[in-house]
Design a binder for these strands. Structure first.
Length: 256
DNA sequence: ATGGCTCCATACTGGAGA
């Protein structure tokens, strides 16, 4: 079972790239973030025509998440991260596909930090951590995936010293990620590639992709029930080089 | 220290992203 995550940065503007990527790499499940489309403007028919079932939670202008499957029914569990009825951002959707619970998330960026946006990031992170603990308690196969907007370690950024004050790399952010993973989650990419330089994002400025000046911020966290089923993982770097690409590249794992 | 680029909105400019 191949599961992928891709921050598309606008699902309608990205549609040709998205469809090409789906056709060439054929993930069984694809989690999308940053749809940047209201619920009724999601390109449902194009996704169906590509052979995928889909559920999504859109929002005007910003955020938005989706889960696609070409291996059968998507059983939606929830489309809101519990813990704050006031939070109206579309940043979370959760479903069971093929007996694996898949949480597709878009964690807030948090810049500028410090400030209210950073506070929102940390409080969202705490809600995620609380919910993740409840998922672990079910002792079932769970994947937490998406754009975490977290650079976990200095190994995950081209020039760590430039990022120390950034919301993606500040000590509070790294500590929150550490606290989450310490519950018992496995960082799939790092389990298979503990020493490699692996990035999932390159900004649009100054030929960052050409210089490989990137970040690793899109992650797969696996519950203990999946750890021994992980057989492969990678980043579809080539997609970042395509015309009209997102600033993120897709990331994927294989489960046996 | 700043801005570089790209997306979307209702747009010829601004907010947000990371």
């Amino acid at each position: 079972m191949k599961i992928a995550t891709y921050n598309v940065n606008g699902v309608n503007g990205r549609l040709p790239v998205l469809l090409r990527w789906l056709g060439e790499t054929m993930p069984d499940v694809a989690c999308l973030q940053e749809l940047k489309a209201p619920q009724e403007k999601f390109p449902e028919q194009a996704i169906l025509d590509a052979g995928y079932e889909v559920i999504w939670h859109g929002q005007k202008s910003w955020n938005g998440v989706a889960i696609l499957s070409r291996i059968g029914a998507i059983k939606e569990i929830r489309r809101v991260l519990p813990g704050d009825p006031e939070d109206v951002h579309s940043r979370y959707i959760e479903a069971v596909v093929n007996d694996v619970l898949i949480a597709c998330l878009y964690l807030p960026n948090g810049n500028p930090a410090p400030g209210p946006k950073f506070d929102y990031k940390l409080s969202w992170f705490e809600r995620l951590t609380t919910h993740a603990k409840q998922l672990l308690a079910q002792e079932i196969p769970v994947v937490l995936t998406g754009d975490f907007n977290v650079i976990p370690t200095p190994q995950d950024v081209y020039k760590p010293e430039r990022w120390v004050d950034d919301a993606l790399f500040r000590p509070e952010t790294r500590a929150a990620f550490q606290k989450l993973t310490a519950q018992g989650w496995t960082d799939a990419i790092r389990k298979l590639y503990p020493e490699e330089k692996i990035y999932t994002y390159w900004d649009y400025f100054r030929d960052a992709f050409g210089r490989d000046a990137g970040l690793r911020i899109d992650h797969f966290l696996l519950s203990p029930q999946l750890e021994t089923r992980l057989t492969a993982a990678g980043v579809d770097r080539q997609v970042r080089g395509w015309e009209k690409s997102s600033d993120h590249a897709p990331v994927w794992i294989e489960l046996k």
